[in-house]
Design a protein around this nucleic acid. Structure first.
Length: 274
DNA sequence: ACGAGCGCCTGTCGGC
DNA sequence: TGCCGACAGGCGCTCG
């Protein structure tokens, strides 16, 4: 599930609270539970359980698809991968079947990491670089410019679908927003990255920011049972729209496989490279 | 350097 | 109705 807009939605809900649920900021951790040991990348479960009690949540951040729970001493870094979500609720609620890690706060609420498939991971560290140093630039930051994107695309000779999914190149795009951004920019997903002109890259830069911003405005995309609460699925132009007419030209949207991922595009608006 | 294949997991959906 | 395979928002690894 979660790509940048969904993780940003988690971040905002935790940070600002949402429909009745309060902000997590200021809460003091009473204790923690690791319900499936594989979820914790670092440190050891024992050390984790000893280190978090007493720490206060001082902020909630995001880097790419990683959610950052800033504590008074450490940062809890969480990657939801395909099916993870975070929940803030009262401790008297029954534990979810797929909860992998929880933080119990002194005020009777808890933070839960729910993860149906066990792909998601959690780190606790004082040094964010331990986990995040290899990530590419943050696509919505002011520092991210068309020039920078152009430079990144020039460093390799790979198909655009691969490049946009590669978190070392740009952090935060997943399968849905990659297809949508390439469609908006009229770029075929097999186009080689270093073959794009600067003006094509400029259009792509705008497209990436547009789909991510629209995704955030709509609280992400809900296309199946895993993630609910988003509305962006109503605005999807190509993702899962194969067989339907292209909103721009009426050509039938096609589906293929690139980078072992389902890939959707308009064969007419996004002409195949030579 | 690039990309295919696979493994990690659990649940849902469609076809038979 | 039930079984079985395909598929799913991600990513790291090996191999050619």
């Amino acid at each position: 599930m979660p790509e940048l807009p969904e993780v940003e939605t988690f971040r905002r809900n935790l940070s600002q609270g949402n429909n009745g649920s309060p902000s997590v900021i200021g809460k003091v951790i009473h204790n923690a539970d690791v319900l499936w040991n594989g979820v914790l990348e670092m440190p050891s479960v024992d050390e984790f359980l000893h280190r978090v009690p007493g720490q206060t949540v001082v902020g909630v951040g995001r880097r790419g698809k990683y959610l950052l729970l800033h504590l008074s001493q450490d940062t809890l870094i969480l990657h939801p991968r395909m099916s993870g979500e975070v929940i803030l609720e009262k401790q008297e609620k029954e534990l979810g079947k797929h909860y992998r890690l929880i933080l119990n706060f002194q005020d009777g609420t808890r933070f839960a990491f729910n993860n149906v498939r066990k792909f998601g991971r959690v780190w606790l560290t004082e040094t964010l670089d331990d986990v995040l140093s290899e990530l590419g630039p943050e696509p919505l930051s002011d520092d991210f410019t068309p020039e920078q994107l152009f430079d990144i695309l020039q460093t390799c000779h790979r198909q655009m679908k691969y490049v946009l999914l590669d978190q070392h190149m740009i952090a935060g795009l997943g399968n849905i927003y990659t297809d949508e951004a390439l469609y908006l920019a009229n770029i075929h997903p097999r186009t080689k990255s270093d073959s794009l002109s600067f003006s094509e890259v400029e259009t792509l830069w705008k497209s990436i920011r547009k789909v991510l911003n629209q995704g955030i405005e709509n609280q992400g995309t809900s296309i199946d049972w895993i993630y609910k609460g988003g509305d962006y699925q109503r605005l999807l132009q190509v993702y899962k729209q194969d067989g339907d007419p292209c909103p721009r030209c009426g050509t039938t949207i096609k589906k293929t496989t690139i980078a072992q991922r389902s890939t959707h595009y308009c064969p007419s608006c996004q002409p195949a490279p030579n």
